[in-house]
Design a protein around this nucleic acid. Structure first.
Lengths: 263, 263
DNA sequence: GGCGGCGGTGAAAAATCTGTGAGTTGATCC
DNA sequence: GGATCAACTCACAGATTTTTCACCGCCGCC
């Protein structure tokens, strides 16, 4: 289902476009449009932990007399879903607002509300952005990930650290659990970018209400212990993490980050 | 070097835009624009084995009275360089030409020639497409802000000043705290405009009631100390700030401003 | 000269974040 | 039904970051 988040303070545009958007087939599934009339309401919704990830955001930069209300929504979105494509729909094309949208807000497109055949143009451009984004998402999936001394086979999900297979720290005869393995994979894939709790929850396809930071933290602990056991259990890996190598706490938004270990 | 391939049959557009494009810095290197006045000539060039790969193609769909001359160039490009981003620059926005550009020709953008401030719009949009494409190519790599001797990676949040990583001034083994990092980023992004307490509070997504000027001031202090430590801790940076370089107090509404430091 | 506001400073208090250990839950298998 | 195991929760202490507070010097102004 194509899920569109739209922030627009002028109701007549909503009345005009919403039915058209909902009747348009963007990705082979029914389209749902969620509209917010105020930037604050949208931000609040976005920040709430249970918010479902939209596929695309449609923003108006200039709302309720505030030049940058739309940009605050954009920042909230970027924080929660860094990859989310955003399109601006505005009456101020060709102005500094358009420039700001492209240069600091990483807009994918900026559509002038006043133009010929706007309904169609809107749909074409949304479709184009969604297609482009889909293309981008399914790039890069090698079977084996190598990062320093780590070897991660994404087919069999086995993980080797300096030649030793990572085992379950609670019971060294058993392999590492599936969730920690996945988390490790996502961390290594995302390196050197950190992954926040929300991003991990998103990738694990977990219920964002349930997957908490405490949860993430615990898996990180499991992983660190597993690495530590793999290199002898002297606590060296834990120490390395504190120094900023291996699985590093990022210090914001409950995020962790994979940094290759130098020897 | 940003290499742009442009196919355009009306010379006056070339005269008008080419100098601007060539004077615009799209990727930190000089820009070169190669113009073809005829679709056939462009296709022939593209198919020739020695043709250099451009970074972006600018096409006009409707040329020399032929509705689809531009699309033939697009097909030639797609065959030779499947990943090449293409932007249409046309007088026929909102028509079937735009639809075709997006739906069958995988246009990244479609820019109407007749619109306010077209020169700037063209540059913003080209820049946006190039950035998006670069991101896509190297698997969403560095979004780095450069300002003088400062290098700020907005993905990993690492900040380097003259090659030294900015650390927490209170504990030099630890990285700069999240809030100061963000404030620095916003300041540099907003430069040369100052950011008042209220603006920072908005960007930090903080409660404007709680985020006071005293607060902002303290973070600025942390930042200045961090810079100072990074260059040796002689207080030089603090002095520079007083002289009007680096993180400058703006003197109104409790605002601060980032000014690149000249050496 | 006294006054008041602004911005810099240092330290203390408050809030938040993290690591840790232990306890629950729920699913699966015997 | 009971054992087992991974995933999840909870509580708490220690570390770290952020906010608050009090004070100081400077400057313009009456």
């Amino acid at each position: 289902m194509a899920n569109i988040l739209w922030v627009e303070d002028q109701l007549h545009w909503v009345d005009r476009f919403q039915p058209i958007l909902e009747a348009t087939d963007f990705d082979g599934e029914p389209t749902r449009v969620t509209v917010f009339g105020f930037a604050e309401a949208a931000c609040q919704h976005i920040r709430s932990p249970g918010a479902a990830r939209p596929d695309l955001a449609l923003l108006d930069a200039h709302m309720n007399g505030n030049d940058s209300a739309g940009f605050s929504v954009s920042r909230a979105l970027r924080r929660k879903w860094p990859e989310l494509p955003m399109i601006y729909l505005s009456e101020h094309s060709g102005t500094g607002i358009e420039q700001q949208a492209f240069e600091t807000s990483e807009a994918r497109d900026f559509i002038a509300k006043h133009q010929a055949n706007i309904e169609s143009v809107l749909c074409w451009r949304i479709k184009a952005v969604l297609r482009q984004h889909a293309l981008q998402q399914r790039g890069a999936s090698d079977a084996v990930i190598d990062s320093g001394d780590l070897r991660l086979d994404t087919e069999t999900w086995e993980v080797y650290w300096r030649g030793h297979k990572l085992m379950n720290p609670g019971n060294s005869r058993r392999p590492l659990g599936p969730t920690p393995r996945k988390i490790l994979r996502y961390l290594v894939e995302a390196a050197p970018r950190p992954l926040s709790t929300a991003q991990i929850a998103d990738r694990l396809d977990a219920d964002p209400e349930r997957f908490s930071y405490a949860n993430y933290r615990q898996h990180i602990r499991t992983l660190r212990l597993a690495f530590d056991h793999a290199e002898g259990g002297q606590g060296d890996f834990i120490e390395a993490c504190k120094r900023g190598e291996g699985i590093v706490t990022f210090g914001d938004q409950g995020a962790y980050c994979w940094k290759p270990v130098v020897r």
